[in-house]
Design a protein around this nucleic acid. Structure first.
Lengths: 163, 163
DNA sequence: TCGACTGTTGAGACGGCATCTCAAAAAGCC
DNA sequence: GGCTTTTTGAGATGCCGTCTCAACAGTCGA
């Protein structure tokens, strides 16, 4: 059984390898950002990364956060997800990979789900339309169990329309 | 066979009924905006609506366009779709309804597709997670047939990662 | 180890899209 | 027509993200 400690630095190692492979420089900001991202659980947005870095004593500018988040995405270590068209959130790419999201409109909670069947259907659909798929986003916006329970039953009936 | 003419005003009627039912006022701007939206085909963004109204001699402010597009969405006559996290586009809610989108990263073309199988899977997934679905967005970003053909074969390999 | 080269950073300006503000105008009701 | 309330327009504002450019700091060769 591998020690818990050995897990975290692995992504940093991968990132450094990615940087060197590209001829990019290994800077303090990049290491700190990578470490901070992988110290977080779940989904985190650029502002939260910015704040977390400042909190950890590694204040960097917003521009640097955005630039290096993009690098982490390019390195394949992090996914960028836009839920609801607003601010983007970032998440670790886990080994299991390939999941989609349900976001609660009320409390903002994000739940991940996996459906290999949907992936297969998408591949089929793209083939049928001669469309070369790069990336797919599947999001369900609605109410999580807790918020649905506390919502007034007939206040704002959520039409089941899919957009 | 119903005349072609009878089709378009139907949405305006529905919109006016929606407005009256809500105690909202029927204004020239609202009628013009509704008429302009349903005179367009396919997807149209707020700026295009704004320009179309100006072109038709019914200039209204951007704020009014946004406010009333939201009303059309609330009325269930129009869908608001965010593709790629950028500017939102609006489309008529057709009778067939319930479709998703493929957007070409190069030329911006939007192709709609329908997959009842995916709808059924989503319903199932939501039930499994006790999640009350309001709306789902499924988008595939990639290259349309024409753009894929003209793209350099191995220039920017599109990773098939799903985010 | 040192210096030079070149990529990276920070601060703030900037950009796109959307929303907010508030006085003036218009709709609806009597 | 007069009154009340909603809607509108113009522009400010906000949010999220990107760009600019001078100063800084990795990296590499000598």
């Amino acid at each position: 059984m591998p020690s818990q400690q050995s897990i975290r630095p692995r992504e940093e190692e991968q990132f450094l390898r990615f940087l060197r492979g590209r001829g990019l420089r290994v800077t303090a900001a990049r290491r700190a950002l990578c470490r901070e991202i992988f110290a977080q659980h779940g989904h985190i947005d650029a502002d939260q990364v910015h704040a977390a870095l400042a909190g950890a004593g590694h204040a960097v500018s917003r521009a640097t956060v955005y630039r290096n988040l993009d690098l982490l995405v390019e390195a394949g270590l992090v996914h960028k997800v836009r839920l609801g068209g607003h601010r983007a959130v970032f998440e670790h790419v886990h080994a299991g990979g390939d999941h989609d999201h349900m976001a609660c409109r009320r409390c903002g909670r994000i739940v991940e789900f996996v459906s290999p069947a949907i992936g297969a259907l998408l591949t089929e659909i793209c083939r049928a339309h001669a469309f070369d798929p790069g990336e797919s986003r599947l999001q369900i916006l609605g109410l999580c169990r807790a918020c649905a329970a506390s919502a007034r039953p007939a206040a704002l009936p959520l039409e089941a329309a899919r957009a």
